[in-house]
Structure formats: structure tokens, C-alpha cells
Design a protein around this nucleic acid. Structure first.
Lengths: 339, 339
DNA sequence: AGATTTCTTGAATCCGAATGCACAATTGCT
DNA sequence: AGCAATTGTGCATTCGGATTCAAGAAATCT
């Protein structure tokens, strides 16, 4: 008693199905192609045969001949805001709804992008979403290979690429205005890692708005986006002779760290004794214990935009780059003393 | 002035390189294959030619002939504990160190697994890591296609598959012992969604240990792993005539929700008025505001084990399935009144 | 030097599906 | 019925690299 599934080891191919159904291989292929002509009778025979041997078109072989892998590469650097899991899930979902698979690359240091790019090219991805910075050379490489790319939350100065991002600067400016308008004057800033484009923009927005409102040279410390670094920076800031009356953290995670540190170590009340604001709108930012005043990135809209932009450019390589900027959702919260 | 990169559009192939280097295509192929014989002189010529035209081996074509795509599929259901981002990052990293790419699939409902499986087969992945449950039929399908699979944190009753998991039951039993030994008697349980294998195990562990210690029929409510559902369940529990003196939440996120609800709405002190424990050891569990008593999954060790098990089975399909169970890391925390 | 082994290398073939082309079968029309 | 227009189907070829085989070149041995 042996199952006649396939030649007892190999996976069933279109030839196997063809033989069983008594038709040609091309016929089988046509049955699985949408617009192709195939009589109902044959289609039925083929599908039955396919069912019997458990046939599935080989996407690899198909990709080879059609020059389309139906895969996109997604590059995410580990630190890039910790709201990235949500981004990743949304991206994957949106792509798969459009019949596209996601090849995932996570990097920790910028130096790894080179290797990742290499892999992407080898795997003939149809497009790339990158939430990591690329050098100009790397960009050129993608262009040379005619692989469209969409930058997520970062756009290279050389503005010839498609990008989707949240308006970090404006969001940060809003936060600053809230703080200043409600009387804060001694405002300190905790940035993200120095190589984070997002952090750069946020910090720039904050400093420039402060300056516009007449506050120069705010205290700036460098964090790494982590909870622990938020705590550390906060500790140091509060140990200074001239304590800040507000802290702007480059992301929510550090803001939460600040709150915990201020409360636990310095016994301060938030926001009565000190105001703390973040950025991102991650889940924990709305925990009752924090109720962060923050700017939430419209992740779902951003990912949808990313996906449709990328697909558009995959399907028509002549469409010119576009940059879509989304305003963040302003959350008043309860971690800053407003008005 | 035209770059002679490639035939002005197509990506360079091994034939292009061969022509430019004045050798055969097979020679080029050999240069890129590790063990193959190629004289230093030829290798040099080929590599120079390759560099000039920007040649990269086409992984798709290679996969077609070698029957190895060097891709594995990773299936993660959205809700499966919220510690999954960490899992995903670690998995991706460990795989890429071994030269394997990750094709990502996220699902929201169990019904989607069928479609995902289909895709996995089409893309000829070499193996599968699944953090979602599969039906027996689906398992058979994978076996039939000779695609090794490793289950992450769930093992089908039919114990013929490889699996890596954290010992949920024992972890939960430990939590229960801590609670009971320190005098808690009226212990309530919040489970995860009913179709979550992890939740099932945790709940079973808790109930069985309670029973072993003489506590029968604890109050059980069903949550969905989310912060909000933790809050809701907690609210209802505390509104009951016989309030629990301890709540066991099936994951940290719900435990945090409970704490917030107990504090904010009922003005209770944690752990003086009520003890609350979770499971997972996610980042927020150690925030100063929560300091959860919980069991942390050894994510890094688990993912490493997963990767090496899967690769082992990919490389030698005859190795028999194995199940590796890791004990969770017990964190005493501060959200439960112990001793 | 001659015989033998080891290395290099190219020609031909293969992987599995898609597709242009030509011919066959069906349909539509007068 | 007779001819044109429309489908339906198979043959042969293609995608890009890996691999087998055999022949030629070089190295080793006696």
C-alpha cells in the first residue's frame, strides 16, 4: 500500500499534474494563471489532478521566468523606535493582502546594511521598505538594480526617493509649545542614539521651537531609546543644581523611564513637580501609571501608504518618487502640566 | 556616454560575467561555490568581471536547481504573547548568521494558517518556525512536503514534531505556590483567548497547582492578552462580593492592566491589598510602577535552540523530532505579597 | 621520460513554470 | 453549408545558475 502522491519523494510539479490529467504542462500552467484561456472541462481535470497529488505552483520557478519574485524586503534596525513591532505587523499584513511576501531583515548596526542589501539583490526582491538609513552608494545600487525603495520615517537628503514619514519636527514643536505656553522655562532634552535619523529630527524640532520662543541652549543629553537610559538621563538631570521643570524625551520609552526615576528616586509628582513628554504613542504610554503627553505616529495609515506607494512603483517603474508626511496624533495626556 | 553596466536594463547574469571574463558560465558558477575547483587566475578574472558589471548570483535561480531556497518561514500570530517582537528579532538574527533568510507571516485568526501554509509551500521554504497552532492536516501537509517544522511555545498533542517551549505549567505552578504559601486563598485567574495554546497551559498549571494545595474552583475569567482586557477583568473581579486577594493573569500585559485598574479605580495598594502576578517577563513588567512578580521566558536561549534544531533537521531530514523545554526565569518582583 | 594521478575547464543538461507561436477545435455569421 | 473569427491546446523555448561528464592541462611519481 503506497500512496501515489508523487514519485515518492519529490514534490509534485506541473508535469506530474499534466500527465495525470492527460494534458500538457502548459495547460496546467494556464489553469493557474488568471487571464489565461482554459476550457472549463480542462480546468476541472487539472484541478482534480492537482488536488490528488497535492500540487502547488513553485513560486521560485515562477519568479525566475516572470522576473517577479513577489517578495519585498523589509529592513528594520532593532532600535528604530520600539514601536516597530506594530509597524512590522501592519506592513506584513498589508503586503500579504496584495499577494506579496515579506523577507525580513533586522540589523543592529549600520554597518550591516551592506550585507543586507547584498542579500536583497540576490533574492530578487521586487521592492524594499527600509526603516534604516542607507548610504548614497547603497541607494545607487538599488536604483541600478531597478528595485524601488520606500523609506520609512527617514528620508535621505538627496530627495529623489519615495518616503513615508511622520512629521517628527512639527510634532516636537507642538510638544514644546505646550510646555512653554504653560510656563515651563527650564526644559531639558534627551535624544536618541546619535545615528538615529528620527531622533535627529525630533531634537531639531524641539530645539528650534524652543529657540523661536526665546529659550536658548537647553540642556541636552544623549540616550539610546531604552527605558534604562531614560532613567539614567533623568537621574543626572535631576541631580543638577538647576533642575529642569520639563523633560522632552525623544521617545516614549525614555519618557517612561524618566517618570519612574523622578517618582521613585526623587519622590516627585508628575506633572506637578516636573513635566515629561515623549514621542511615538506606544502601548505603555497610555498605561494609567504614565498617561504620557506625547505625539502618536499614525502607524496604520503610514504602513498603508508605504505599501501602496511601493506597489505602485513596482508595477510602474516610471512613476516618480513621492514623499508622504503624516502629522502625528497629539495626545495631551497627563504627564505634563498644561495651562 | 553610456555605462556598459549590463545590457542596459537587465541585471547581470553569470553569462554576462562569463563573456566579459572570457570563460564559460560554469566557471563563473564555480567561483561562487565554496568547494568547487577554480584556478586563482580564473577566479581573479571572474571576480573582476563580476565587480565591473555588478553581478550577484541570483538566489532564485540557484534555489530552483539546488532545491534549497535558504529561506525559512516564520509564522507568528499577532496576539501570541506580546513578547513576540523580541522573539522575531532574535530568530531573524540567528537565522541570518547561518545564511538563512526569514519569510515572515503574521496571522490574526487561526483560519489564516491554511493560506499561510499554502504560501510557504509555494515559496519552497526549507523549514518553518511556527508560533501558531496547526491542525493535524496541516502538519501532515508539511510532512508530506518534507518541510521540517519547529513549534515555538506550543506542541501538538500528536508528539511527533520538534518543539521548543518554555515550561508554562511549571512556571505557573511556582507562582501559585508563592501566593498560597504567603497566605493567599482567594485566588482568581484571568486566562488568555480560548484558542491560545499558551494560555491553556498556563491556566491548567495554575488550576492544578491550586487544586494540589487544596484550593478548588477558583474564579476564572477570560481575557484576550491585552492591557484593556486585564483592566476589565480586574474591574469585574473587584466588584464581586468576595473579592480575590490575588489575581493570576495569563500574561504580563493583563497583569499590568489589573494593577492599573486596582490602583486607579479601587484605590488599592499593590501588593498590600491585592497581589497580582503575570507571565512572560516583557519589558514593561520591570517598570518601576509595576515590578511584576512573573516568570520570564528565556527568549534568547529559546530562539537559539529553535534555530539550531530547525537547521539540523533541514540538513539531515532523518533526525528525529525533539522537544526542548526551558524553565522560565522566576522573578519575585514586587506585585505580590510574598511570605 | 613516461605513466599516472590530480586539477581545471567547457559543453550539455536540468530545475519548474510561463509564454509566443502555430495549429486544432469551436463558435458565429451570412 | 461554407467561411471567418474566436478559443483552446501543445510544442518548444526561456529564465539563471548548478552539476555531470569528458577532455585537456598540470603536477606527481617511478
Amino acid at each position: 500500500m503506497h500512496t501515489s502522491k508523487t514519485r515518492h519523494n519529490r514534490r509534485a510539479t506541473s508535469y506530474d499534474v499534466a500527465k495525470l490529467a492527460g494534458v500538457s504542462q502548459s495547460a496546467v500552467s494556464r489553469v493557474y494563471k488568471d487571464g489565461a484561456s482554459a476550457s472549463p472541462a480542462m480546468r476541472k481535470r487539472v484541478l482534480e489532478a492537482a488536488e490528488e497529488v497535492g500540487y502547488r505552483p513553485n513560486a521560485i520557478a515562477r519568479g525566475l521566468i516572470t522576473q517577479r519574485s513577489n517578495m519585498v524586503g523589509v529592513i528594520i534596525s532593532r532600535m528604530t523606535n520600539l514601536n516597530y513591532p506594530e509597524v512590522l505587523v501592519e506592513l506584513t499584513r498589508a503586503f500579504s493582502e496584495r499577494g506579496i511576501r515579506v523577507l525580513l531583515f533586522t540589523i543592529e548596526r549600520e554597518s550591516e546594511t551592506a550585507a543586507v542589501l547584498d542579500q536583497l539583490l540576490q533574492y530578487q526582491v521586487d521592492g524594499v521598505v527600509t526603516a534604516a538609513m542607507l548610504t548614497n552608494d547603497q541607494l545607487k545600487m538599488l536604483e541600478g538594480a531597478r528595485i524601488p525603495a520606500v523609506f520609512f520615517n527617514r528620508s535621505p537628503k538627496d530627495g529623489t526617493v519615495s518616503a513615508v514619514r511622520c512629521d517628527q519636527e512639527e510634532g516636537e514643536r507642538w510638544l514644546v509649545r505646550q510646555l512653554v505656553e504653560s510656563g515651563h522655562r527650564n526644559i531639558a532634552i534627551i535624544t536618541g542614539p546619535e545615528d538615529s535619523a528620527v531622533s535627529l529630527e525630533r531634537t531639531r524640532g524641539a530645539i528650534s521651537q524652543l529657540s523661536d520662543l526665546g529659550i536658548q541652549n537647553p540642556l541636552v543629553m544623549t540616550g539610546d531609546y531604552s527605558y534604562e537610559s531614560g532613567r539614567q538621563c533623568c537621574r543626572q538631570m535631576l541631580a543638577m543644581p538647576q533642575k529642569p521643570d520639563a523633560i522632552i524625551a525623544a521617545n516614549d520609552m525614555m519618557a517612561i523611564g524618566c517618570i519612574d526615576e523622578a517618582r521613585e528616586r526623587y519622590d516627585l509628582l508628575i506633572p506637578d513637580d516636573i513635566s515629561i513628554v515623549g514621542f511615538d504613542g506606544i502601548g505603555p504610554s497610555s498605561f494609567a501609571a504614565y498617561q504620557l503627553t506625547t505625539v502618536q505616529q499614525p502607524v496604520e495609515r503610514m504602513t498603508k501608504a508605504t505599501v501602496s506607494m511601493l506597489i505602485e512603483r513596482i508595477e510602474d517603474s516610471s512613476v516618480s518618487p513621492e514623499e508622504r508626511v503624516f502629522a502625528g496624533h497629539r495626545i495631551a495626556g497627563n504627564s505634563a502640566r498644561l495651562n
